[in-house]
Every structure is written in structure tokens, then in C-alpha cells.
Nucleic acid binder design. Sequence first.
DNA 1: ATAAGATATCTCGACATCGAGATAAGATTC
DNA 2: GAATCTTATCTCGATGTCGAGATATCTTAT
Lengths: 156, 156
Amino acid sequence: MTDEQNIVSAPRLWLVLARTSRSIGDFIEGSFNAQGLILSDFMVLEVLLHKGPLTISVIGEKVLLASASMTSAIDRLEKRGLVRRKNCATDRRTRYVELTDEGKGFIEEIYARHEKDLEFVAAGLSEAERRTMYEGLKKMGLAAKMAVPTQKCKTA
Amino acid sequence: MTDEQNIVSAPRLWLVLARTSRSIGDFIEGSFNAQGLILSDFMVLEVLLHKGPLTISVIGEKVLLASASMTSAIDRLEKRGLVRRKNCATDRRTRYVELTDEGKGFIEEIYARHEKDLEFVAAGLSEAERRTMYEGLKKMGLAAKMAVPTQKCKTA
DNA sequence: ATAAGATATCTCGACATCGAGATAAGATTC
DNA sequence: GAATCTTATCTCGATGTCGAGATATCTTAT
């Protein structure tokens, strides 16, 4: 740390933010790439584990994937027997996606490791630091979202 | 903010970090997508603007692109007349990449806008907040990098 | 000087993602 | 009830990225 007394410019903050995000992303991907899972597929499984069966478009909103990408993501997971598509009784356009038993055990195990990975990465941070970072990141993210016209930014 | 008093878990911190990084990325891309620039190409031009001519592999290290991706990135930029490949006098394997006059003017203008975008995003943060976030992000990034065996993590 | 190893760039094939458009079905309006 | 609008998913083609391997060149050891 040679810059202990300099002010943190916005570009510099963004640089370290982007790099950190990437480093952590690479790191956590390491814990399931060996199982042939990519980050998107992991996120889909994780959402299903914690929220239960959801429609394809709802999952897509949560993991930030376009509909075309969702179709192929679910295809990949279904082909491996980790999830199952189920027709909706009341709306025949809709397809619910749910974890198979195998998929549930699979993601549970991987998610436990994932949590440990994240604890490790954040281990050096005090509660106050986490709080400040959390709030600061939210502020920045909200400002960025508000500035993008296409994005729907819920004010709540 | 309904969670003013809860502790910030590592997964939650990572979630907001990843989302913020993405939101800001989308936002800043908006300011040059109209010019037909993608983020990678912008980063290449930005490095050349601030560091001067560099070899393809050095640029790749700085913008975190694999060599195959760098070849096509430079191809794209060269085709548009924004950069130029130059053979190295002392090492015939190496190709230096430099901005053309057009490329220089182009990236200068876009970078100015880019800086404003980032100032806008970080505007709501006090100097203390920025400092805490900066240091905290660096801590997390370093921890993640150290945990990835393939990555060379300079201790300096 | 030669052989073996390292390095810089490029080529090729695979793949995840996306936008746009197709299809089918629910919701709304008249 | 038919026409129109909206929504959910899928298909298709294009693109950016990557890993692995090819090629050319430099470096090092002998």
C-alpha cells in the first residue's frame, strides 16, 4: 500500500471494484468448475435451492440472464438431470423449473463450499467495514442503475 | 433500507458487490456502445492512452484478456483505424500496438465522458467511505487471488 | 554451434451470451 | 366473441471469449 494518504478517485475506486469482483468470481468459480458447472448455472441452481420452483423468466431476472440464455441454461441443467421443467396448470405458456433430488443434493453440497469460500474472502473485514462497503456499494449501484434508462429501478 | 441493523454476511456482501459491478459496467458501457465500442476494446484503448505503446501480451495482462481474445480485439481496433501494429526492432516475435491519431482523439473524448460517469456514480460517497471501500475491496480481492493457485499474486 | 526450452502472437474450434424475431397462449377491449 | 395487446418461452444467427495447439523467434545450456 504505497498510497495511504492519497484520495481515492472515482476511476480508481471503480478499477479496484471491477478487479475485485472478477477475482472473487474467478475464485468461487473454481469451487464448481471441476463439477462442470459454470457461474450462470450455479446461480440458477442456487436460486432454485433458496426460493423453490420458479418460472424461467423469474429465474432470469434474478440471475440477470436474457431469455435466450435462460433457455440454454435450463437445457444444460436438465440434460444433466439436475432440474426438471414442469408445465404450469393455470398458464400453458409458463414452465416451472424445479430441482430434481439429485440436483438438490448437488447444489446443497456445492453451496456449502461456496459459503465457506466467501467467508474466507471476507474474513479480514470488520463488521463496520462490511457495513460501510455494503452501503457504499448499494449507493453506487443505485446511482448507476438510475442512470441507465432501459433498466427498471425500483425505488423501494 | 430495511436491514439497517442486521449484520452483513459474506454472501450478502458478495451479492451486492457483484450486482454493483455489473450495474456500473452496464452504465459505463452505455457511454461508448453507441460508438460501436465494447468494454474490452475501450479498456485496450484506455491503456494505450495512459501508458503509451505496449505489446499485445502486456495489454492483455492489464485488461485481463487471454491471448486469443487480444488478437481479435486488436484486429477489431486496427480494422477501424484506431490502433496500429508495429514490429519491434529488437524482437521479431513482438508487435507493439499504438494509437493512431484518430484513435487518440477518439479515446480521449470517450474517456473524458467515462470519467464523468464514474464521478457521478461515486458522487454520494464521502472521502472516508471511499477509503474504507477501497481498502476493503483490495483486501477481499487479494484474499481471492491468493486462493486461486493459477494466478500469480505479487505480494508487493 | 546446436539442442532444448521459453516466449509472443496467431489460428482454430467450442461455447456462453445476446438481440431479434417466431410461436403460442393468456388478458383486455370493444 | 373477435381483435388486439401482452407475456412466456423458444429458435436462430451473430459475436466475444477462451483453451489448446501451431508457428516463429529468442534464450539458455551444453
